[in-house]
């Protein structure tokens, strides 16, 4: 399962792809096919657009299937990147309810269960709202199979 995960880098940022979490909402490839093209191998072409543009689309992915991180060992860019991350940290977290789907959370958050066990979160974290995900607490797309309404 884990082994299907991939990462792609342009030196500046790394994009993570976790196929298990993809709900095929098509956001990525309808909006930036120069980078996200399911017909190509590898399907993510990090040279297809600027890092900023790639990040914009990664952040629009409604699930955790796509995530990104600024690479650490990158002199100048790192300084700008760090600044960006710091500015982000000051923003309130945003919880967006997706119609008939998950909660999509952006921002720096801490996620734990009631026993205090901590779960990893990304720049975007989608949590299940329909009650039947097989990967709790995260949304795994099952809400569509059960035609969840809410």
């Amino acid at each position: 399962m884990e082994s299907n995960n991939r990462d792609y880098t342009n030196g500046e940022i790394t994009v993570y792809w976790r196929p298990k979490l993809c709900i095929h909402a098509t956001t990525c490839y309808t909006q930036l096919v120069e980078v996200f093209n399911p017909r190509n191998r590898p399907w993510i072409n990090m040279k297809g657009a600027t890092s900023e543009r790639i990040i914009e689309i990664v952040n629009k992915c409604p699930t955790d299937a796509l995530a990104f991180k600024w690479n650490a060992d990158n002199g100048l860019t790192e300084t700008t990147a760090t600044k960006k991350v710091e500015t982000q940290t000051l923003q309130p977290a945003e919880i967006q309810i997706m119609k008939d789907g998950p909660l999509v959370i952006t921002g720096k958050i801490k996620l734990t269960d009631n026993d205090g066990k901590e779960y990893k979160t990304y720049s975007i974290t989608s949590l299940c709202r329909c009650g039947v995900s097989n990967n709790m607490p995260f949304c795994d797309g099952t809400h569509r199979k059960i035609a969840f309404e809410g």
Binding site: Q91, P92, T112
Partner: peptide, 19 residues
């Protein structure tokens, strides 16, 4: 900025700075 705590089979508590 915000803490999310969930109970298996039940709710998600959100505390802190969020919209």
């Amino acid at each position: 900025v915000a803490e999310f705590t969930f109970k298996p089979g039940a709710s998600l508590r959100v505390k802190g700075d969020f919209i």
